[in-house]
Design a protein around this nucleic acid. Structure first.
Lengths: 115, 115
DNA sequence: ACGAGATACCTCACCTGTCAAGGTATCTAT
DNA sequence: ATAGATACCTTGACAGGTGAGGTATCTCGT
């Protein structure tokens, strides 16, 4: 079972930043890591991934450089910047706050008798 | 601090259905309940809410009827249908599954050494 | 030698849900 | 009278995700 696009939305950038926090990486690898880690349930489509990279780079949260592979297809590696680390921390916190609220709301736990 | 739209996205329908599971209600009240329950952090904008109602009604997950208020502004009440209850259960389950994965991913916990 | 499949990148047009900004009407309290 | 709350609704714009297409290299089996 795969995850609906609208649930994915809003997490793409956070996930990419999370992975780049660990180490530099490149598109294809990040994509595959996510797919295998979630057994195919969560998948960033290539188009989504590359547009996200562009957004992140424009925001100066990541920077890119071409790998020096002697053989095989060329790879564009991404590094997270200091601004990116800060943004990641903020996004993570924001998500954790939101998560609590969303869980409460989707379960209909609105206390206080209002409704 | 308010929640980003992209985190809201994908939950609107689930939240509305959750509330209607409890009892019939109407737009303004649902909206306010959410706002006060989350102390303003989570807010469905009116336009979002009403388009969601239309979507849900078209899908036959909810039905609407005009309230019989003697005074005050007229209210359009919504009831959840049987199909709506089933859809809600599915959405809730889907979300709970997604939640686990998202949490893992945004924290960068990709085990297995891949990446 | 050749084809299939994996690796690796990229772009464009389209779709869908959210939102800002506007509107209408009624009731209540000052 | 007027402000503010209650209550509904529509429109156009916007942004992120996606399907469908493209390019190029390497490996492996036949």
């Amino acid at each position: 079972m795969s995850i609906a696009s609208d649930l994915i939305r809003g997490h793409t950038e956070t996930i990419i930043l999370a992975l780049l926090t660990r180490s530099d990486s490149y598109g294809y690898r990040i994509n595959k890591a996510i797919r295998t880690a979630t057994k195919g349930a969560y998948e960033l489509k290539e188009a989504t991934l590359y547009t996200a990279f562009r957004r992140l780079e424009e925001a100066d949260y990541i920077r890119s450089y071409w790998g020096s592979e002697e053989s095989g297809a060329r790879r564009r590696y991404y590094t997270i910047t200091e601004a990116g680390r800060i943004a990641y921390a903020r996004l993570l916190e924001e998500w954790q706050r939101a998560n609590v609220l969303i869980n409460r709301l989707v379960e209909g736990n609105i206390e206080g008798g209002d409704l």
